[in-house]
Simulated scan of single mutants.
Amino acid sequence: MITLRARPCAPPPGQLCESPVWDGNELRWVDIRRGHIHRAALDRARLDLVHRATISLAPPVSAVVPCESGALVATLGDEVVRLDEDGEVTTITAIPLPDDGIRRRMNDAKVDPLGRLLAGTMSEDGVEGSAALYRIDGDGALATVRAGVTISNGLGWSPDGATLYYADSPTKRVDAFEYDLTTGTVGAGRPFVQFETGEPDGLTVDAEGWVWVAIWGAGQVHAFDPAGQRRAVIDVGPSQVSSCVFAGPDLDVLVITTAKEGMAADEPDAGRLFMCVPGVVGVPGMRYADAGLVGSDGR
Rank of each mutant, 00 (worst) to 15 (best):
D31Q: 05
S152P: 12
D206G: 08
T54Y: 11
G285D: 00
Y179D: 03
T182H: 13
L57E: 14
A207Y: 09
A247N: 00
F195E: 08
P268H: 09
R105K: 09
G262M: 14
S56P: 05
W210D: 12
A291I: 09
Y165C: 06
V50T: 12
P170W: 05
V213C: 14
G279Y: 04
S158E: 03
R7I: 15
D137T: 13
F274G: 01
G262D: 13
Q229Y: 10
V111M: 00
E261I: 10
T185C: 15
V81F: 02
A265L: 15
R52H: 11
A58R: 14
E196D: 12
V61G: 04
C17Q: 11
L133N: 04
I136F: 04
E79W: 08
A214M: 08
E68M: 04
G248C: 03
P11F: 01
Y165E: 12
E18Q: 11
T163I: 11
F246E: 04
A214S: 10
R52Q: 15
T3M: 13
G285Y: 02
D180W: 05
V50W: 05
G148H: 08
G77D: 09
T144A: 14
G35E: 12
G189T: 08
P200L: 06
A40P: 01
D78M: 08
A270L: 07
Y288A: 00
D252S: 06
R103G: 13
D225G: 12
I95F: 15
I2S: 03
F177K: 02
R190S: 01
F195P: 02
L181P: 02
I215H: 02
P11L: 03
D250A: 14
D201V: 06
G202Y: 09
G70R: 02
G120E: 00
T75K: 04
A167Q: 01
L181K: 02
L203P: 00
I92H: 00
A232P: 03
V241I: 10
R135Q: 09
G187C: 02
T150Q: 07
V65D: 01
G70Y: 01
V61M: 06
